[in-house]
Lab assay of single mutants.
Amino acid sequence: RELEKFANEFKVRRIKLGYTQTNVGEALAAVHGSEFSQTTICRFENLQLSFKNACKLKAILSKWLEEAE
Rank of each mutant, 00 (worst) to 15 (best):
K56Y: 08
L3P: 06
A59L: 12
L57M: 15
I60T: 06
E26F: 02
C42K: 15
A29T: 14
K11M: 06
K58N: 05
S37H: 04
L47G: 15
F10P: 01
G33Y: 00
S50P: 15
I41R: 05
L65Y: 02
T39V: 12
V31I: 14
S37G: 12
N8S: 14
F36P: 04
Q48P: 07
G25N: 01
I60A: 09
I60L: 11
Y19K: 04
L49S: 06
L17M: 07
R1E: 08
E66D: 13
N46T: 05
A30T: 10
T39I: 09
A30G: 09
L17A: 08
R1G: 11
S62H: 12
A29C: 08
A29Y: 05
R1F: 12
S62N: 07
K5P: 00
R14E: 00
R1I: 06
F51H: 14
K56A: 10
E67N: 12
R13P: 01
I60Q: 06
R14N: 01
E35H: 10
Q21K: 04
Q48G: 04
T22N: 13
F44Y: 02
N53I: 13
Q21G: 00
E26K: 15
K63Q: 11
L49P: 04
L49H: 04
A29K: 10
L61G: 03
L3D: 02
T20S: 13
N46I: 01
K11G: 05
T20E: 06
Q21F: 01
A54S: 14
N8G: 09
G25C: 13
E9V: 05
G25R: 02
A68S: 06
Y19Q: 11
T40R: 02
A27W: 14
R43D: 14
C55M: 15
L28E: 04
K58A: 07
T20I: 00
F6N: 01
N23T: 11
F10H: 03
S50I: 08
F10L: 04
E4D: 05
E67M: 10
N46C: 03
E45Y: 00
S62T: 14
V12S: 14
A30W: 04
C55T: 12
E2Y: 05
T39D: 15
C42T: 13
K11Q: 07
N53M: 14
W64A: 07
E45S: 01
F6S: 00
A59W: 05
L17N: 04
V24N: 05
E67H: 09
T20A: 02
V12A: 15
L3R: 03
R14W: 02
T40H: 08
R1D: 11
E26W: 07
N46L: 07
T40V: 09
F51N: 09
A54L: 13
N46H: 06
F10T: 01
E66N: 08
F10Q: 07
W64S: 04
A59C: 12
E45V: 02
E9T: 08
F36L: 08
E9Q: 11
T40Y: 00
N8L: 14
A54C: 08
K52E: 14
S50R: 08
K52Q: 14
E45R: 00
T40K: 03
R43P: 02
S34A: 12
F44R: 01
A59S: 13
E66Q: 11
N8D: 06
K5G: 07
S62D: 13
G33S: 03
T40M: 07
I15H: 08
F51W: 13
R43C: 06
A29M: 08
Q21D: 04
I15K: 13
G33M: 03
L47P: 02
T22D: 11
R13F: 01
K16W: 02
E26S: 05
E69D: 09
E9G: 02
W64I: 03
L28C: 01
S34M: 11
E66L: 08
K58V: 05
E35F: 10
A7P: 01
T40D: 15
Q48L: 08
E45M: 01
K5L: 10
V31D: 07
V24L: 08
N53L: 13
S62I: 13
A27G: 03
S50D: 15
E4V: 12
L57C: 10
E35L: 10
E67I: 00
K52C: 03
A68R: 10
N53P: 12
C55I: 14
E66Y: 09
K16R: 13
L49Q: 03
K52I: 07
V31R: 13
G18I: 04
L57F: 12
L17T: 00
L49A: 00
Q21R: 09
A27D: 10
E4L: 05
R14M: 05
L49C: 10
S62V: 11
K56T: 09
R13E: 00
Y19V: 02
E26R: 06
K63N: 08
A30L: 10
K58E: 03
K16C: 12
C55A: 10
K58P: 04
L47Y: 07
Y19F: 07
I41K: 02
S62L: 11
F10S: 06
Q21I: 10
F10M: 05
Q48D: 13
E9K: 09
N8A: 15
F44N: 00
L57A: 07
F36A: 07
A68G: 04
F44D: 02
K5T: 10
S62M: 12
N46Q: 10
F36S: 00
K63C: 07
T39G: 12
E35Y: 08
F6R: 02
R1K: 15
E66K: 09
K16N: 12
N53V: 15
E35P: 08
G25A: 15
S34T: 11
N46R: 09
